[in-house]
Design a protein around this nucleic acid. Structure first.
Lengths: 237, 237
DNA sequence: GGAATAGTGTCTATGAGACATTATTCC
DNA sequence: GGAATAATGTCTCATAGACACTATTCC
């Protein structure tokens, strides 16, 4: 065989989604050094010695935010290795995808002013969209698509929420990630009655400004069979 | 951060499935050199310079079989990077998953006596199961699980067949990969009537020893909505 | 009372699964 | 004729989706 590259540089990069103020948002870090100064990038870095790739992804998240974030779910997304994705050297990036509940305070605290959650729509269409490093915009797009698909056939939507939560909270997670409106009545039935172990009632209820809502926590189920099918997007909020 | 490993060794390894004589089989290569002499391994090797990872996977398949195989489908599976998966050095493997139609002749031809398809059941339970290198048995297991899932919601089962094929041929692909029996009547209806573009009739039919069967080729559809749901495995053949 | 949200009830259309039936071929 | 397979017909049950309705709270 022709020319081989056994010693490419490897990095682990994380797409961490959360929902802030009703908007799907992704954690980015402003580059202070390297090339790309001032550009924004996914949190990440080389594999940590004696740690597997999942652990390395977690470590880089802690590193980037001063341990302010801890994902409720983290999975491998895919690996990016186009020869010219980094013009300087062959670089292979193992992408990760994470979900977490919204934080009470911004991540941008104290000694880490460079990490923040960006609403996802902003850097699709916005004018003040940050400039992203390498193919990180592509990776985020792939992460979003995976997230949307996973909500269909897993119970992972609950990892966007802190327990206890209401069925409406859970429905709003679906609506935000999918960008659609869902019928409250049918959604409730699907989640509560037709899918054992998706959520379990706490017995409490929460005043919501209108009618009080029953509270739930995540159940033991991990898969949704049959799945919760995503309607054709109508791009509602 | 503590210790980082920027220069891990990278390889691309391929799980290539086909169906031979009614059995799901995977392509393996006998190691002639290195450590692991005499062990069997997935075909693969380092990324090819100036080629992306998909192309590298294809190149290693050609290399291993003298261009005898060409997958009808090839996709990235996942990346393996546990620190101790290769005791000699940190090695990160990007796994690929491929499907192809059965070959008329064995792969083991001429100057490549070291590559062959192994029936999958053999190295799960068999006594003459080959010894596999590193975590390749795990990678094959992950590939099988992915393959089973993909048949549910994509049209990729046709990539196990040469056109034209009968609906029974297609059903046997599902039965072999899933390890279950399917109701012929309902399967036919699902494939032919309820999923536009899965298969399209050629107009011909083939004598099968019994009643003649209508012939089809793969259609333009790539996804199955709603999916073809896999029954609980009863481990039939 | 009016508006908004939580939760329940009910109807319809679709499709999966079970199984019967007919047609065709080889023995 | 008998066995095996291809293809079609028919019935039932589960459920997604649409929508009406009641209950509760804040204004």
């Amino acid at each position: 065989m022709s020319e081989l590259e056994a010693d490419a540089t490897v990095t682990v990069d994380v797409v961490l989604f959360t929902i802030r103020q009703g908007r799907l948002s992704v954690l980015l870090v402003e580059r202070q050094d390297d090339p790309f100064v001032g550009c924004w990038a996914l949190p990440g870095g080389p594999p940590v010695a004696a740690a597997d790739l999942d652990q390395s992804a977690n470590r880089h998240l802690e590193e980037a935010t001063g341990a302010a974030v801890s994902p409720g779910h983290l999975e491998q997304l895919r690996t990016y290795g186009t020869p010219d994705r980094n013009p300087e050297a062959r670089q292979i990036s193992v992408g990760y995808l994470g979900f977490m509940a919204d934080l009470p305070a911004p991540v941008t605290a104290g000694d880490r002013p460079s990490a923040r959650f960006w609403p996802h729509d902003d850097f699709l269409t916005g004018d003040d969209a940050p400039e992203l490093v390498l193919d990180h915009r592509q990776i985020i797009g792939d992460g979003l698509e995976r997230a949307r698909a996973k909500l269909e056939y897993t119970t992972l939507a609950t990892t966007f929420l802190e327990a206890p939560f209401t069925i409406s909270d859970l429905r709003r997670v679906y609506q935000t990630v999918w960008g659609v409106q869902l019928e409250p009545a049918n959604f409730r039935r699907k989640v509560v009655e037709r899918t054992d172990g998706f959520v379990e009632p706490t017995g409490e209820s929460r005043p919501t400004g209108r009618a009080p809502a029953l509270l739930y926590r995540a159940g033991p189920a991990t898969e949704l069979t049959p799945p919760l099918v995503r309607p054709d997007a109508d791009e509602a909020s």
